[in-house]
Structure formats: C-alpha cells, structure tokens
Design a protein around this nucleic acid. Structure first.
Lengths: 196, 196
DNA sequence: GGGAGCATGTAACGGGTTACATGATTGG
DNA sequence: CCAATCATGTAACCCGTTACATGCTCCC
C-alpha cells in the first residue's frame, strides 16, 4: 500500500464519490454506468479504461478494497468498496479542497465566435440543432430527476439532477436568444447594407 | 511541410481561429491573451506553452507562416499569419466538422452531488461563493461585450461575448435557486425529523 | 528597486483517449 | 442470429499542464 496522496485527480475523487453512495458494492463497470447516469450532466464521464486504472490506484493507496464475486456460473467480477480511510479522504476533499472554477468547452459558441468563417445561415443551423440537443438533454435529466425523486434515496443526487434539468433548459433558451440576435443583426445589415 | 491533417486538436483549431480574425499578425503571446480575453468564457484557454507547440505544428503542415519582427531594439518576436490553406481548412472545419457536445466539468455541482459527505451548511457556503464568482464573471463578460460593441469590428465575437454574459447571469441564478432548494429541503426535514 | 507585462521556449510528467482483445448472457 | 449489455483489462498515443529558464521594458 502506497502512502495516501492528497493530489488525486478529479476523476479519482469522482470514483470515490460514486462508491460513497450507500448501497451495494460496485464493479468498475457499474461505477461507469453510475457516472453516465448522473455525473454526466455536470461533469464529464471518464472512459471505462480510466476508471479501472483509478480503481487500481485507489486500492494501492488503501482508499478502496476489492474482492471477487460470482457474475454468473462461469465468471467472476471484482467489486469495490470504500474503506474508512477512503470515506474520510473523500469527505475531507469535498469539504476542504479549493474548488476549481467550472471548465466549459463549448464547440457551438466557438462556431459563433468564428461566425465570420461560417456565415449566418450555417450558424442558424448549428444553433437550431444545439437548441434541440439541449431540449433532449433537458428531457433526459428531467426523467432521471423524477425517478430519483420517486426513489427518495439520494436527495443530494436529486438536487444535482434538478440543477442539470434547469441548466439544459437555460442552455436551450440561450441558443434561441442567440438566434434572435442573429436575426436582428441581419435586419440591421439589410437596412444599412455593408455601410462602408 | 507535413501533409495537412484533418484530425487536429480543438486547441489547434482555436489557435487558427484567433489568427483568422482580420488585423495584425499575432505572436504566440498575443494569441494567448486573445484567448484569455474572449475564448475563455466559453472555451478553456490552453497553456501558453501548448500554444507555442501548436503554432509550430501548424506551421509544419502549412496552415500558418511566421517571420521575425523587432519587438524592441534588442530582441525579435515571431509573428504568425494564416495561410490560404489555413483559412480554407479552418473554414471547412468550422462549417462541416461534427460539433462535439459541450463538455462541462462543474466542481461545484459535483460537491452538491456529494452533499451527503458535506452537509447543508458547507454546501450553502460553496453555493454562495459560486454565485458570487458567477456574478464577477458576468460583470467581466459584460464589460468586454460593451467594449466589443463600441469597437464594432468583430460582430460575431461580440455575439459570443453576449452569450457568455447571459450564461454567467444564468449560472448565478441557478446557484441561488439551488440555495432555495436546500432551504426547502431543510424545512421539510425539520417538520418530519428523519422519518425512519 | 521591484513587480507586471511582453516574449519564447524546453523538459518532465501525468491524465485521458481510442483501439484492441476476449467472452458470456439476454432479449428481440 | 445478432445486437446490446455486462465485464475486465492492456497498449499506444497525444494532449495539456506545471515548472523551469531567460531577459527586456515600463511604471510606480
């Protein structure tokens, strides 16, 4: 067992986070699907191979333990459980480590910013599609939020999902407001045609 | 000169994007400060060292050219300019390459999701600070938007900044709505004290 | 005199991705 | 029968970061 490292990556903390939820012990695969189902909406979900790697690392520093359990008659799977040290570490991290400002990589707005290379027509298409995408994400998050609400087990997870629902609602609205701005911009250019 | 590579990283396209804006040729340092001033609000700004590397790579595939210009009496700096091939490539990319869904890494909502490890008091602090942060970002973006508006040179850049202004406005509001949700949650728990 | 801004880069490191490899079970 | 889901992992690669190194100019 290596010594505890306070400089774990965000992904490692997120994995510990998944394991911190009460309930069954979880396999690497399950950790990934949990991440995809809730985390995904406000935190990028790492690749499965990365999760397996983090789990190994976390076990080597003693924050999780694992054991093999039968998956079916022929095969075994490895289940992970948070240790006391792990729970302690993730609690301390969550409560005390400085929170980095949110990171956003918004390809759609990048295209808007490069509007002079695209033209307003293409931009409109991009923004319309994005608004639809945001609508779909909104619906997905809302459905998950509702099911979390019915289950009443993890109130904070539900809260995070509620935030996500509103976030995507706002995301769609912002896209549609930009579409209006584009219309106004074009209208202005039509009145004063390329005033030079 | 290597062959053109359609599989450039997002950062490379963003760098080409900066260089696609009309005006002076730009140094690596200037590319970075441009990115910090506008891109930053909707697309993470890469490290300076990374920009220098991308610039070299981009030159090797013929999308930019460079030359040395006097920085002051003693030293030179290297200025970069988009080539025709580069302009073509970035235009094609902006208009035709599939747009990846926005990536968000929201440390604050991650903490909300892990609320069972933090407690509502700590969460309230975190959310209040985040709302203040969003207010500051909102003010910054609004100031940049106003100055872009005065200059009237890059209308699409202004549009992207307008989106950013609204985004951070919404971000602050979402944090404050979560604070209200926390209050309600606590109120409910006070009435039915840990109903078990 | 010192700090901030301008300017360019290298080196070491690690985080994260995709592709590959394997294989059973379940349901349409 | 085929696709999806469950399940675990390795290998190669690259993207990006921090730290380090250097040094001028301008302004307080």
């Amino acid at each position: 067992m290596s010594e505890p490292d306070s400089e774990l990556s965000a992904t490692a903390w997120a994995v510990l986070g998944v394991l911190s939820f009460p309930g069954e012990d979880r396999s690497g695969y399950e950790v990934k699907s949990w991440a995809d189902r809730s985390l995904q909406y406000f935190y990028w979900s790492p690749a499965l191979s990365q999760i397996y790697r983090e789990l190994k690392k976390l076990e080597s520093i003693g924050y999780v333990t694992s054991y093999t359990a039968p998956q079916d008659e022929l095969r075994n799977k490895r289940l992970y459980r948070l240790t006391d040290a792990g729970r302690e570490a993730v609690s301390t991290w969550a409560a005390s480590s400085p929170i980095a400002p949110p990171v956003l990589k918004h390809g759609v707005i990048l295209r808007v910013w490069l509007g002079h290379l695209l033209g307003t027509d293409k931009l409109r298409t991009v923004l319309t599609e994005h608004a639809d995408y945001a609508d779909r994400m909104h619906a997905e998050a809302a459905a998950l939020e509702a099911s979390a609400h019915r289950q009443k087990i993890w109130p904070y997870s539900e809260l995070a999902l509620r935030w996500s629902t509103r976030y995507f609602e706002s995301e769609a609205e912002l896209a549609r407001r930009l579409l209006k701005d584009l219309d106004e911009m074009d209208a202005r250019n039509a009145v004063e045609p390329t005033a030079e």
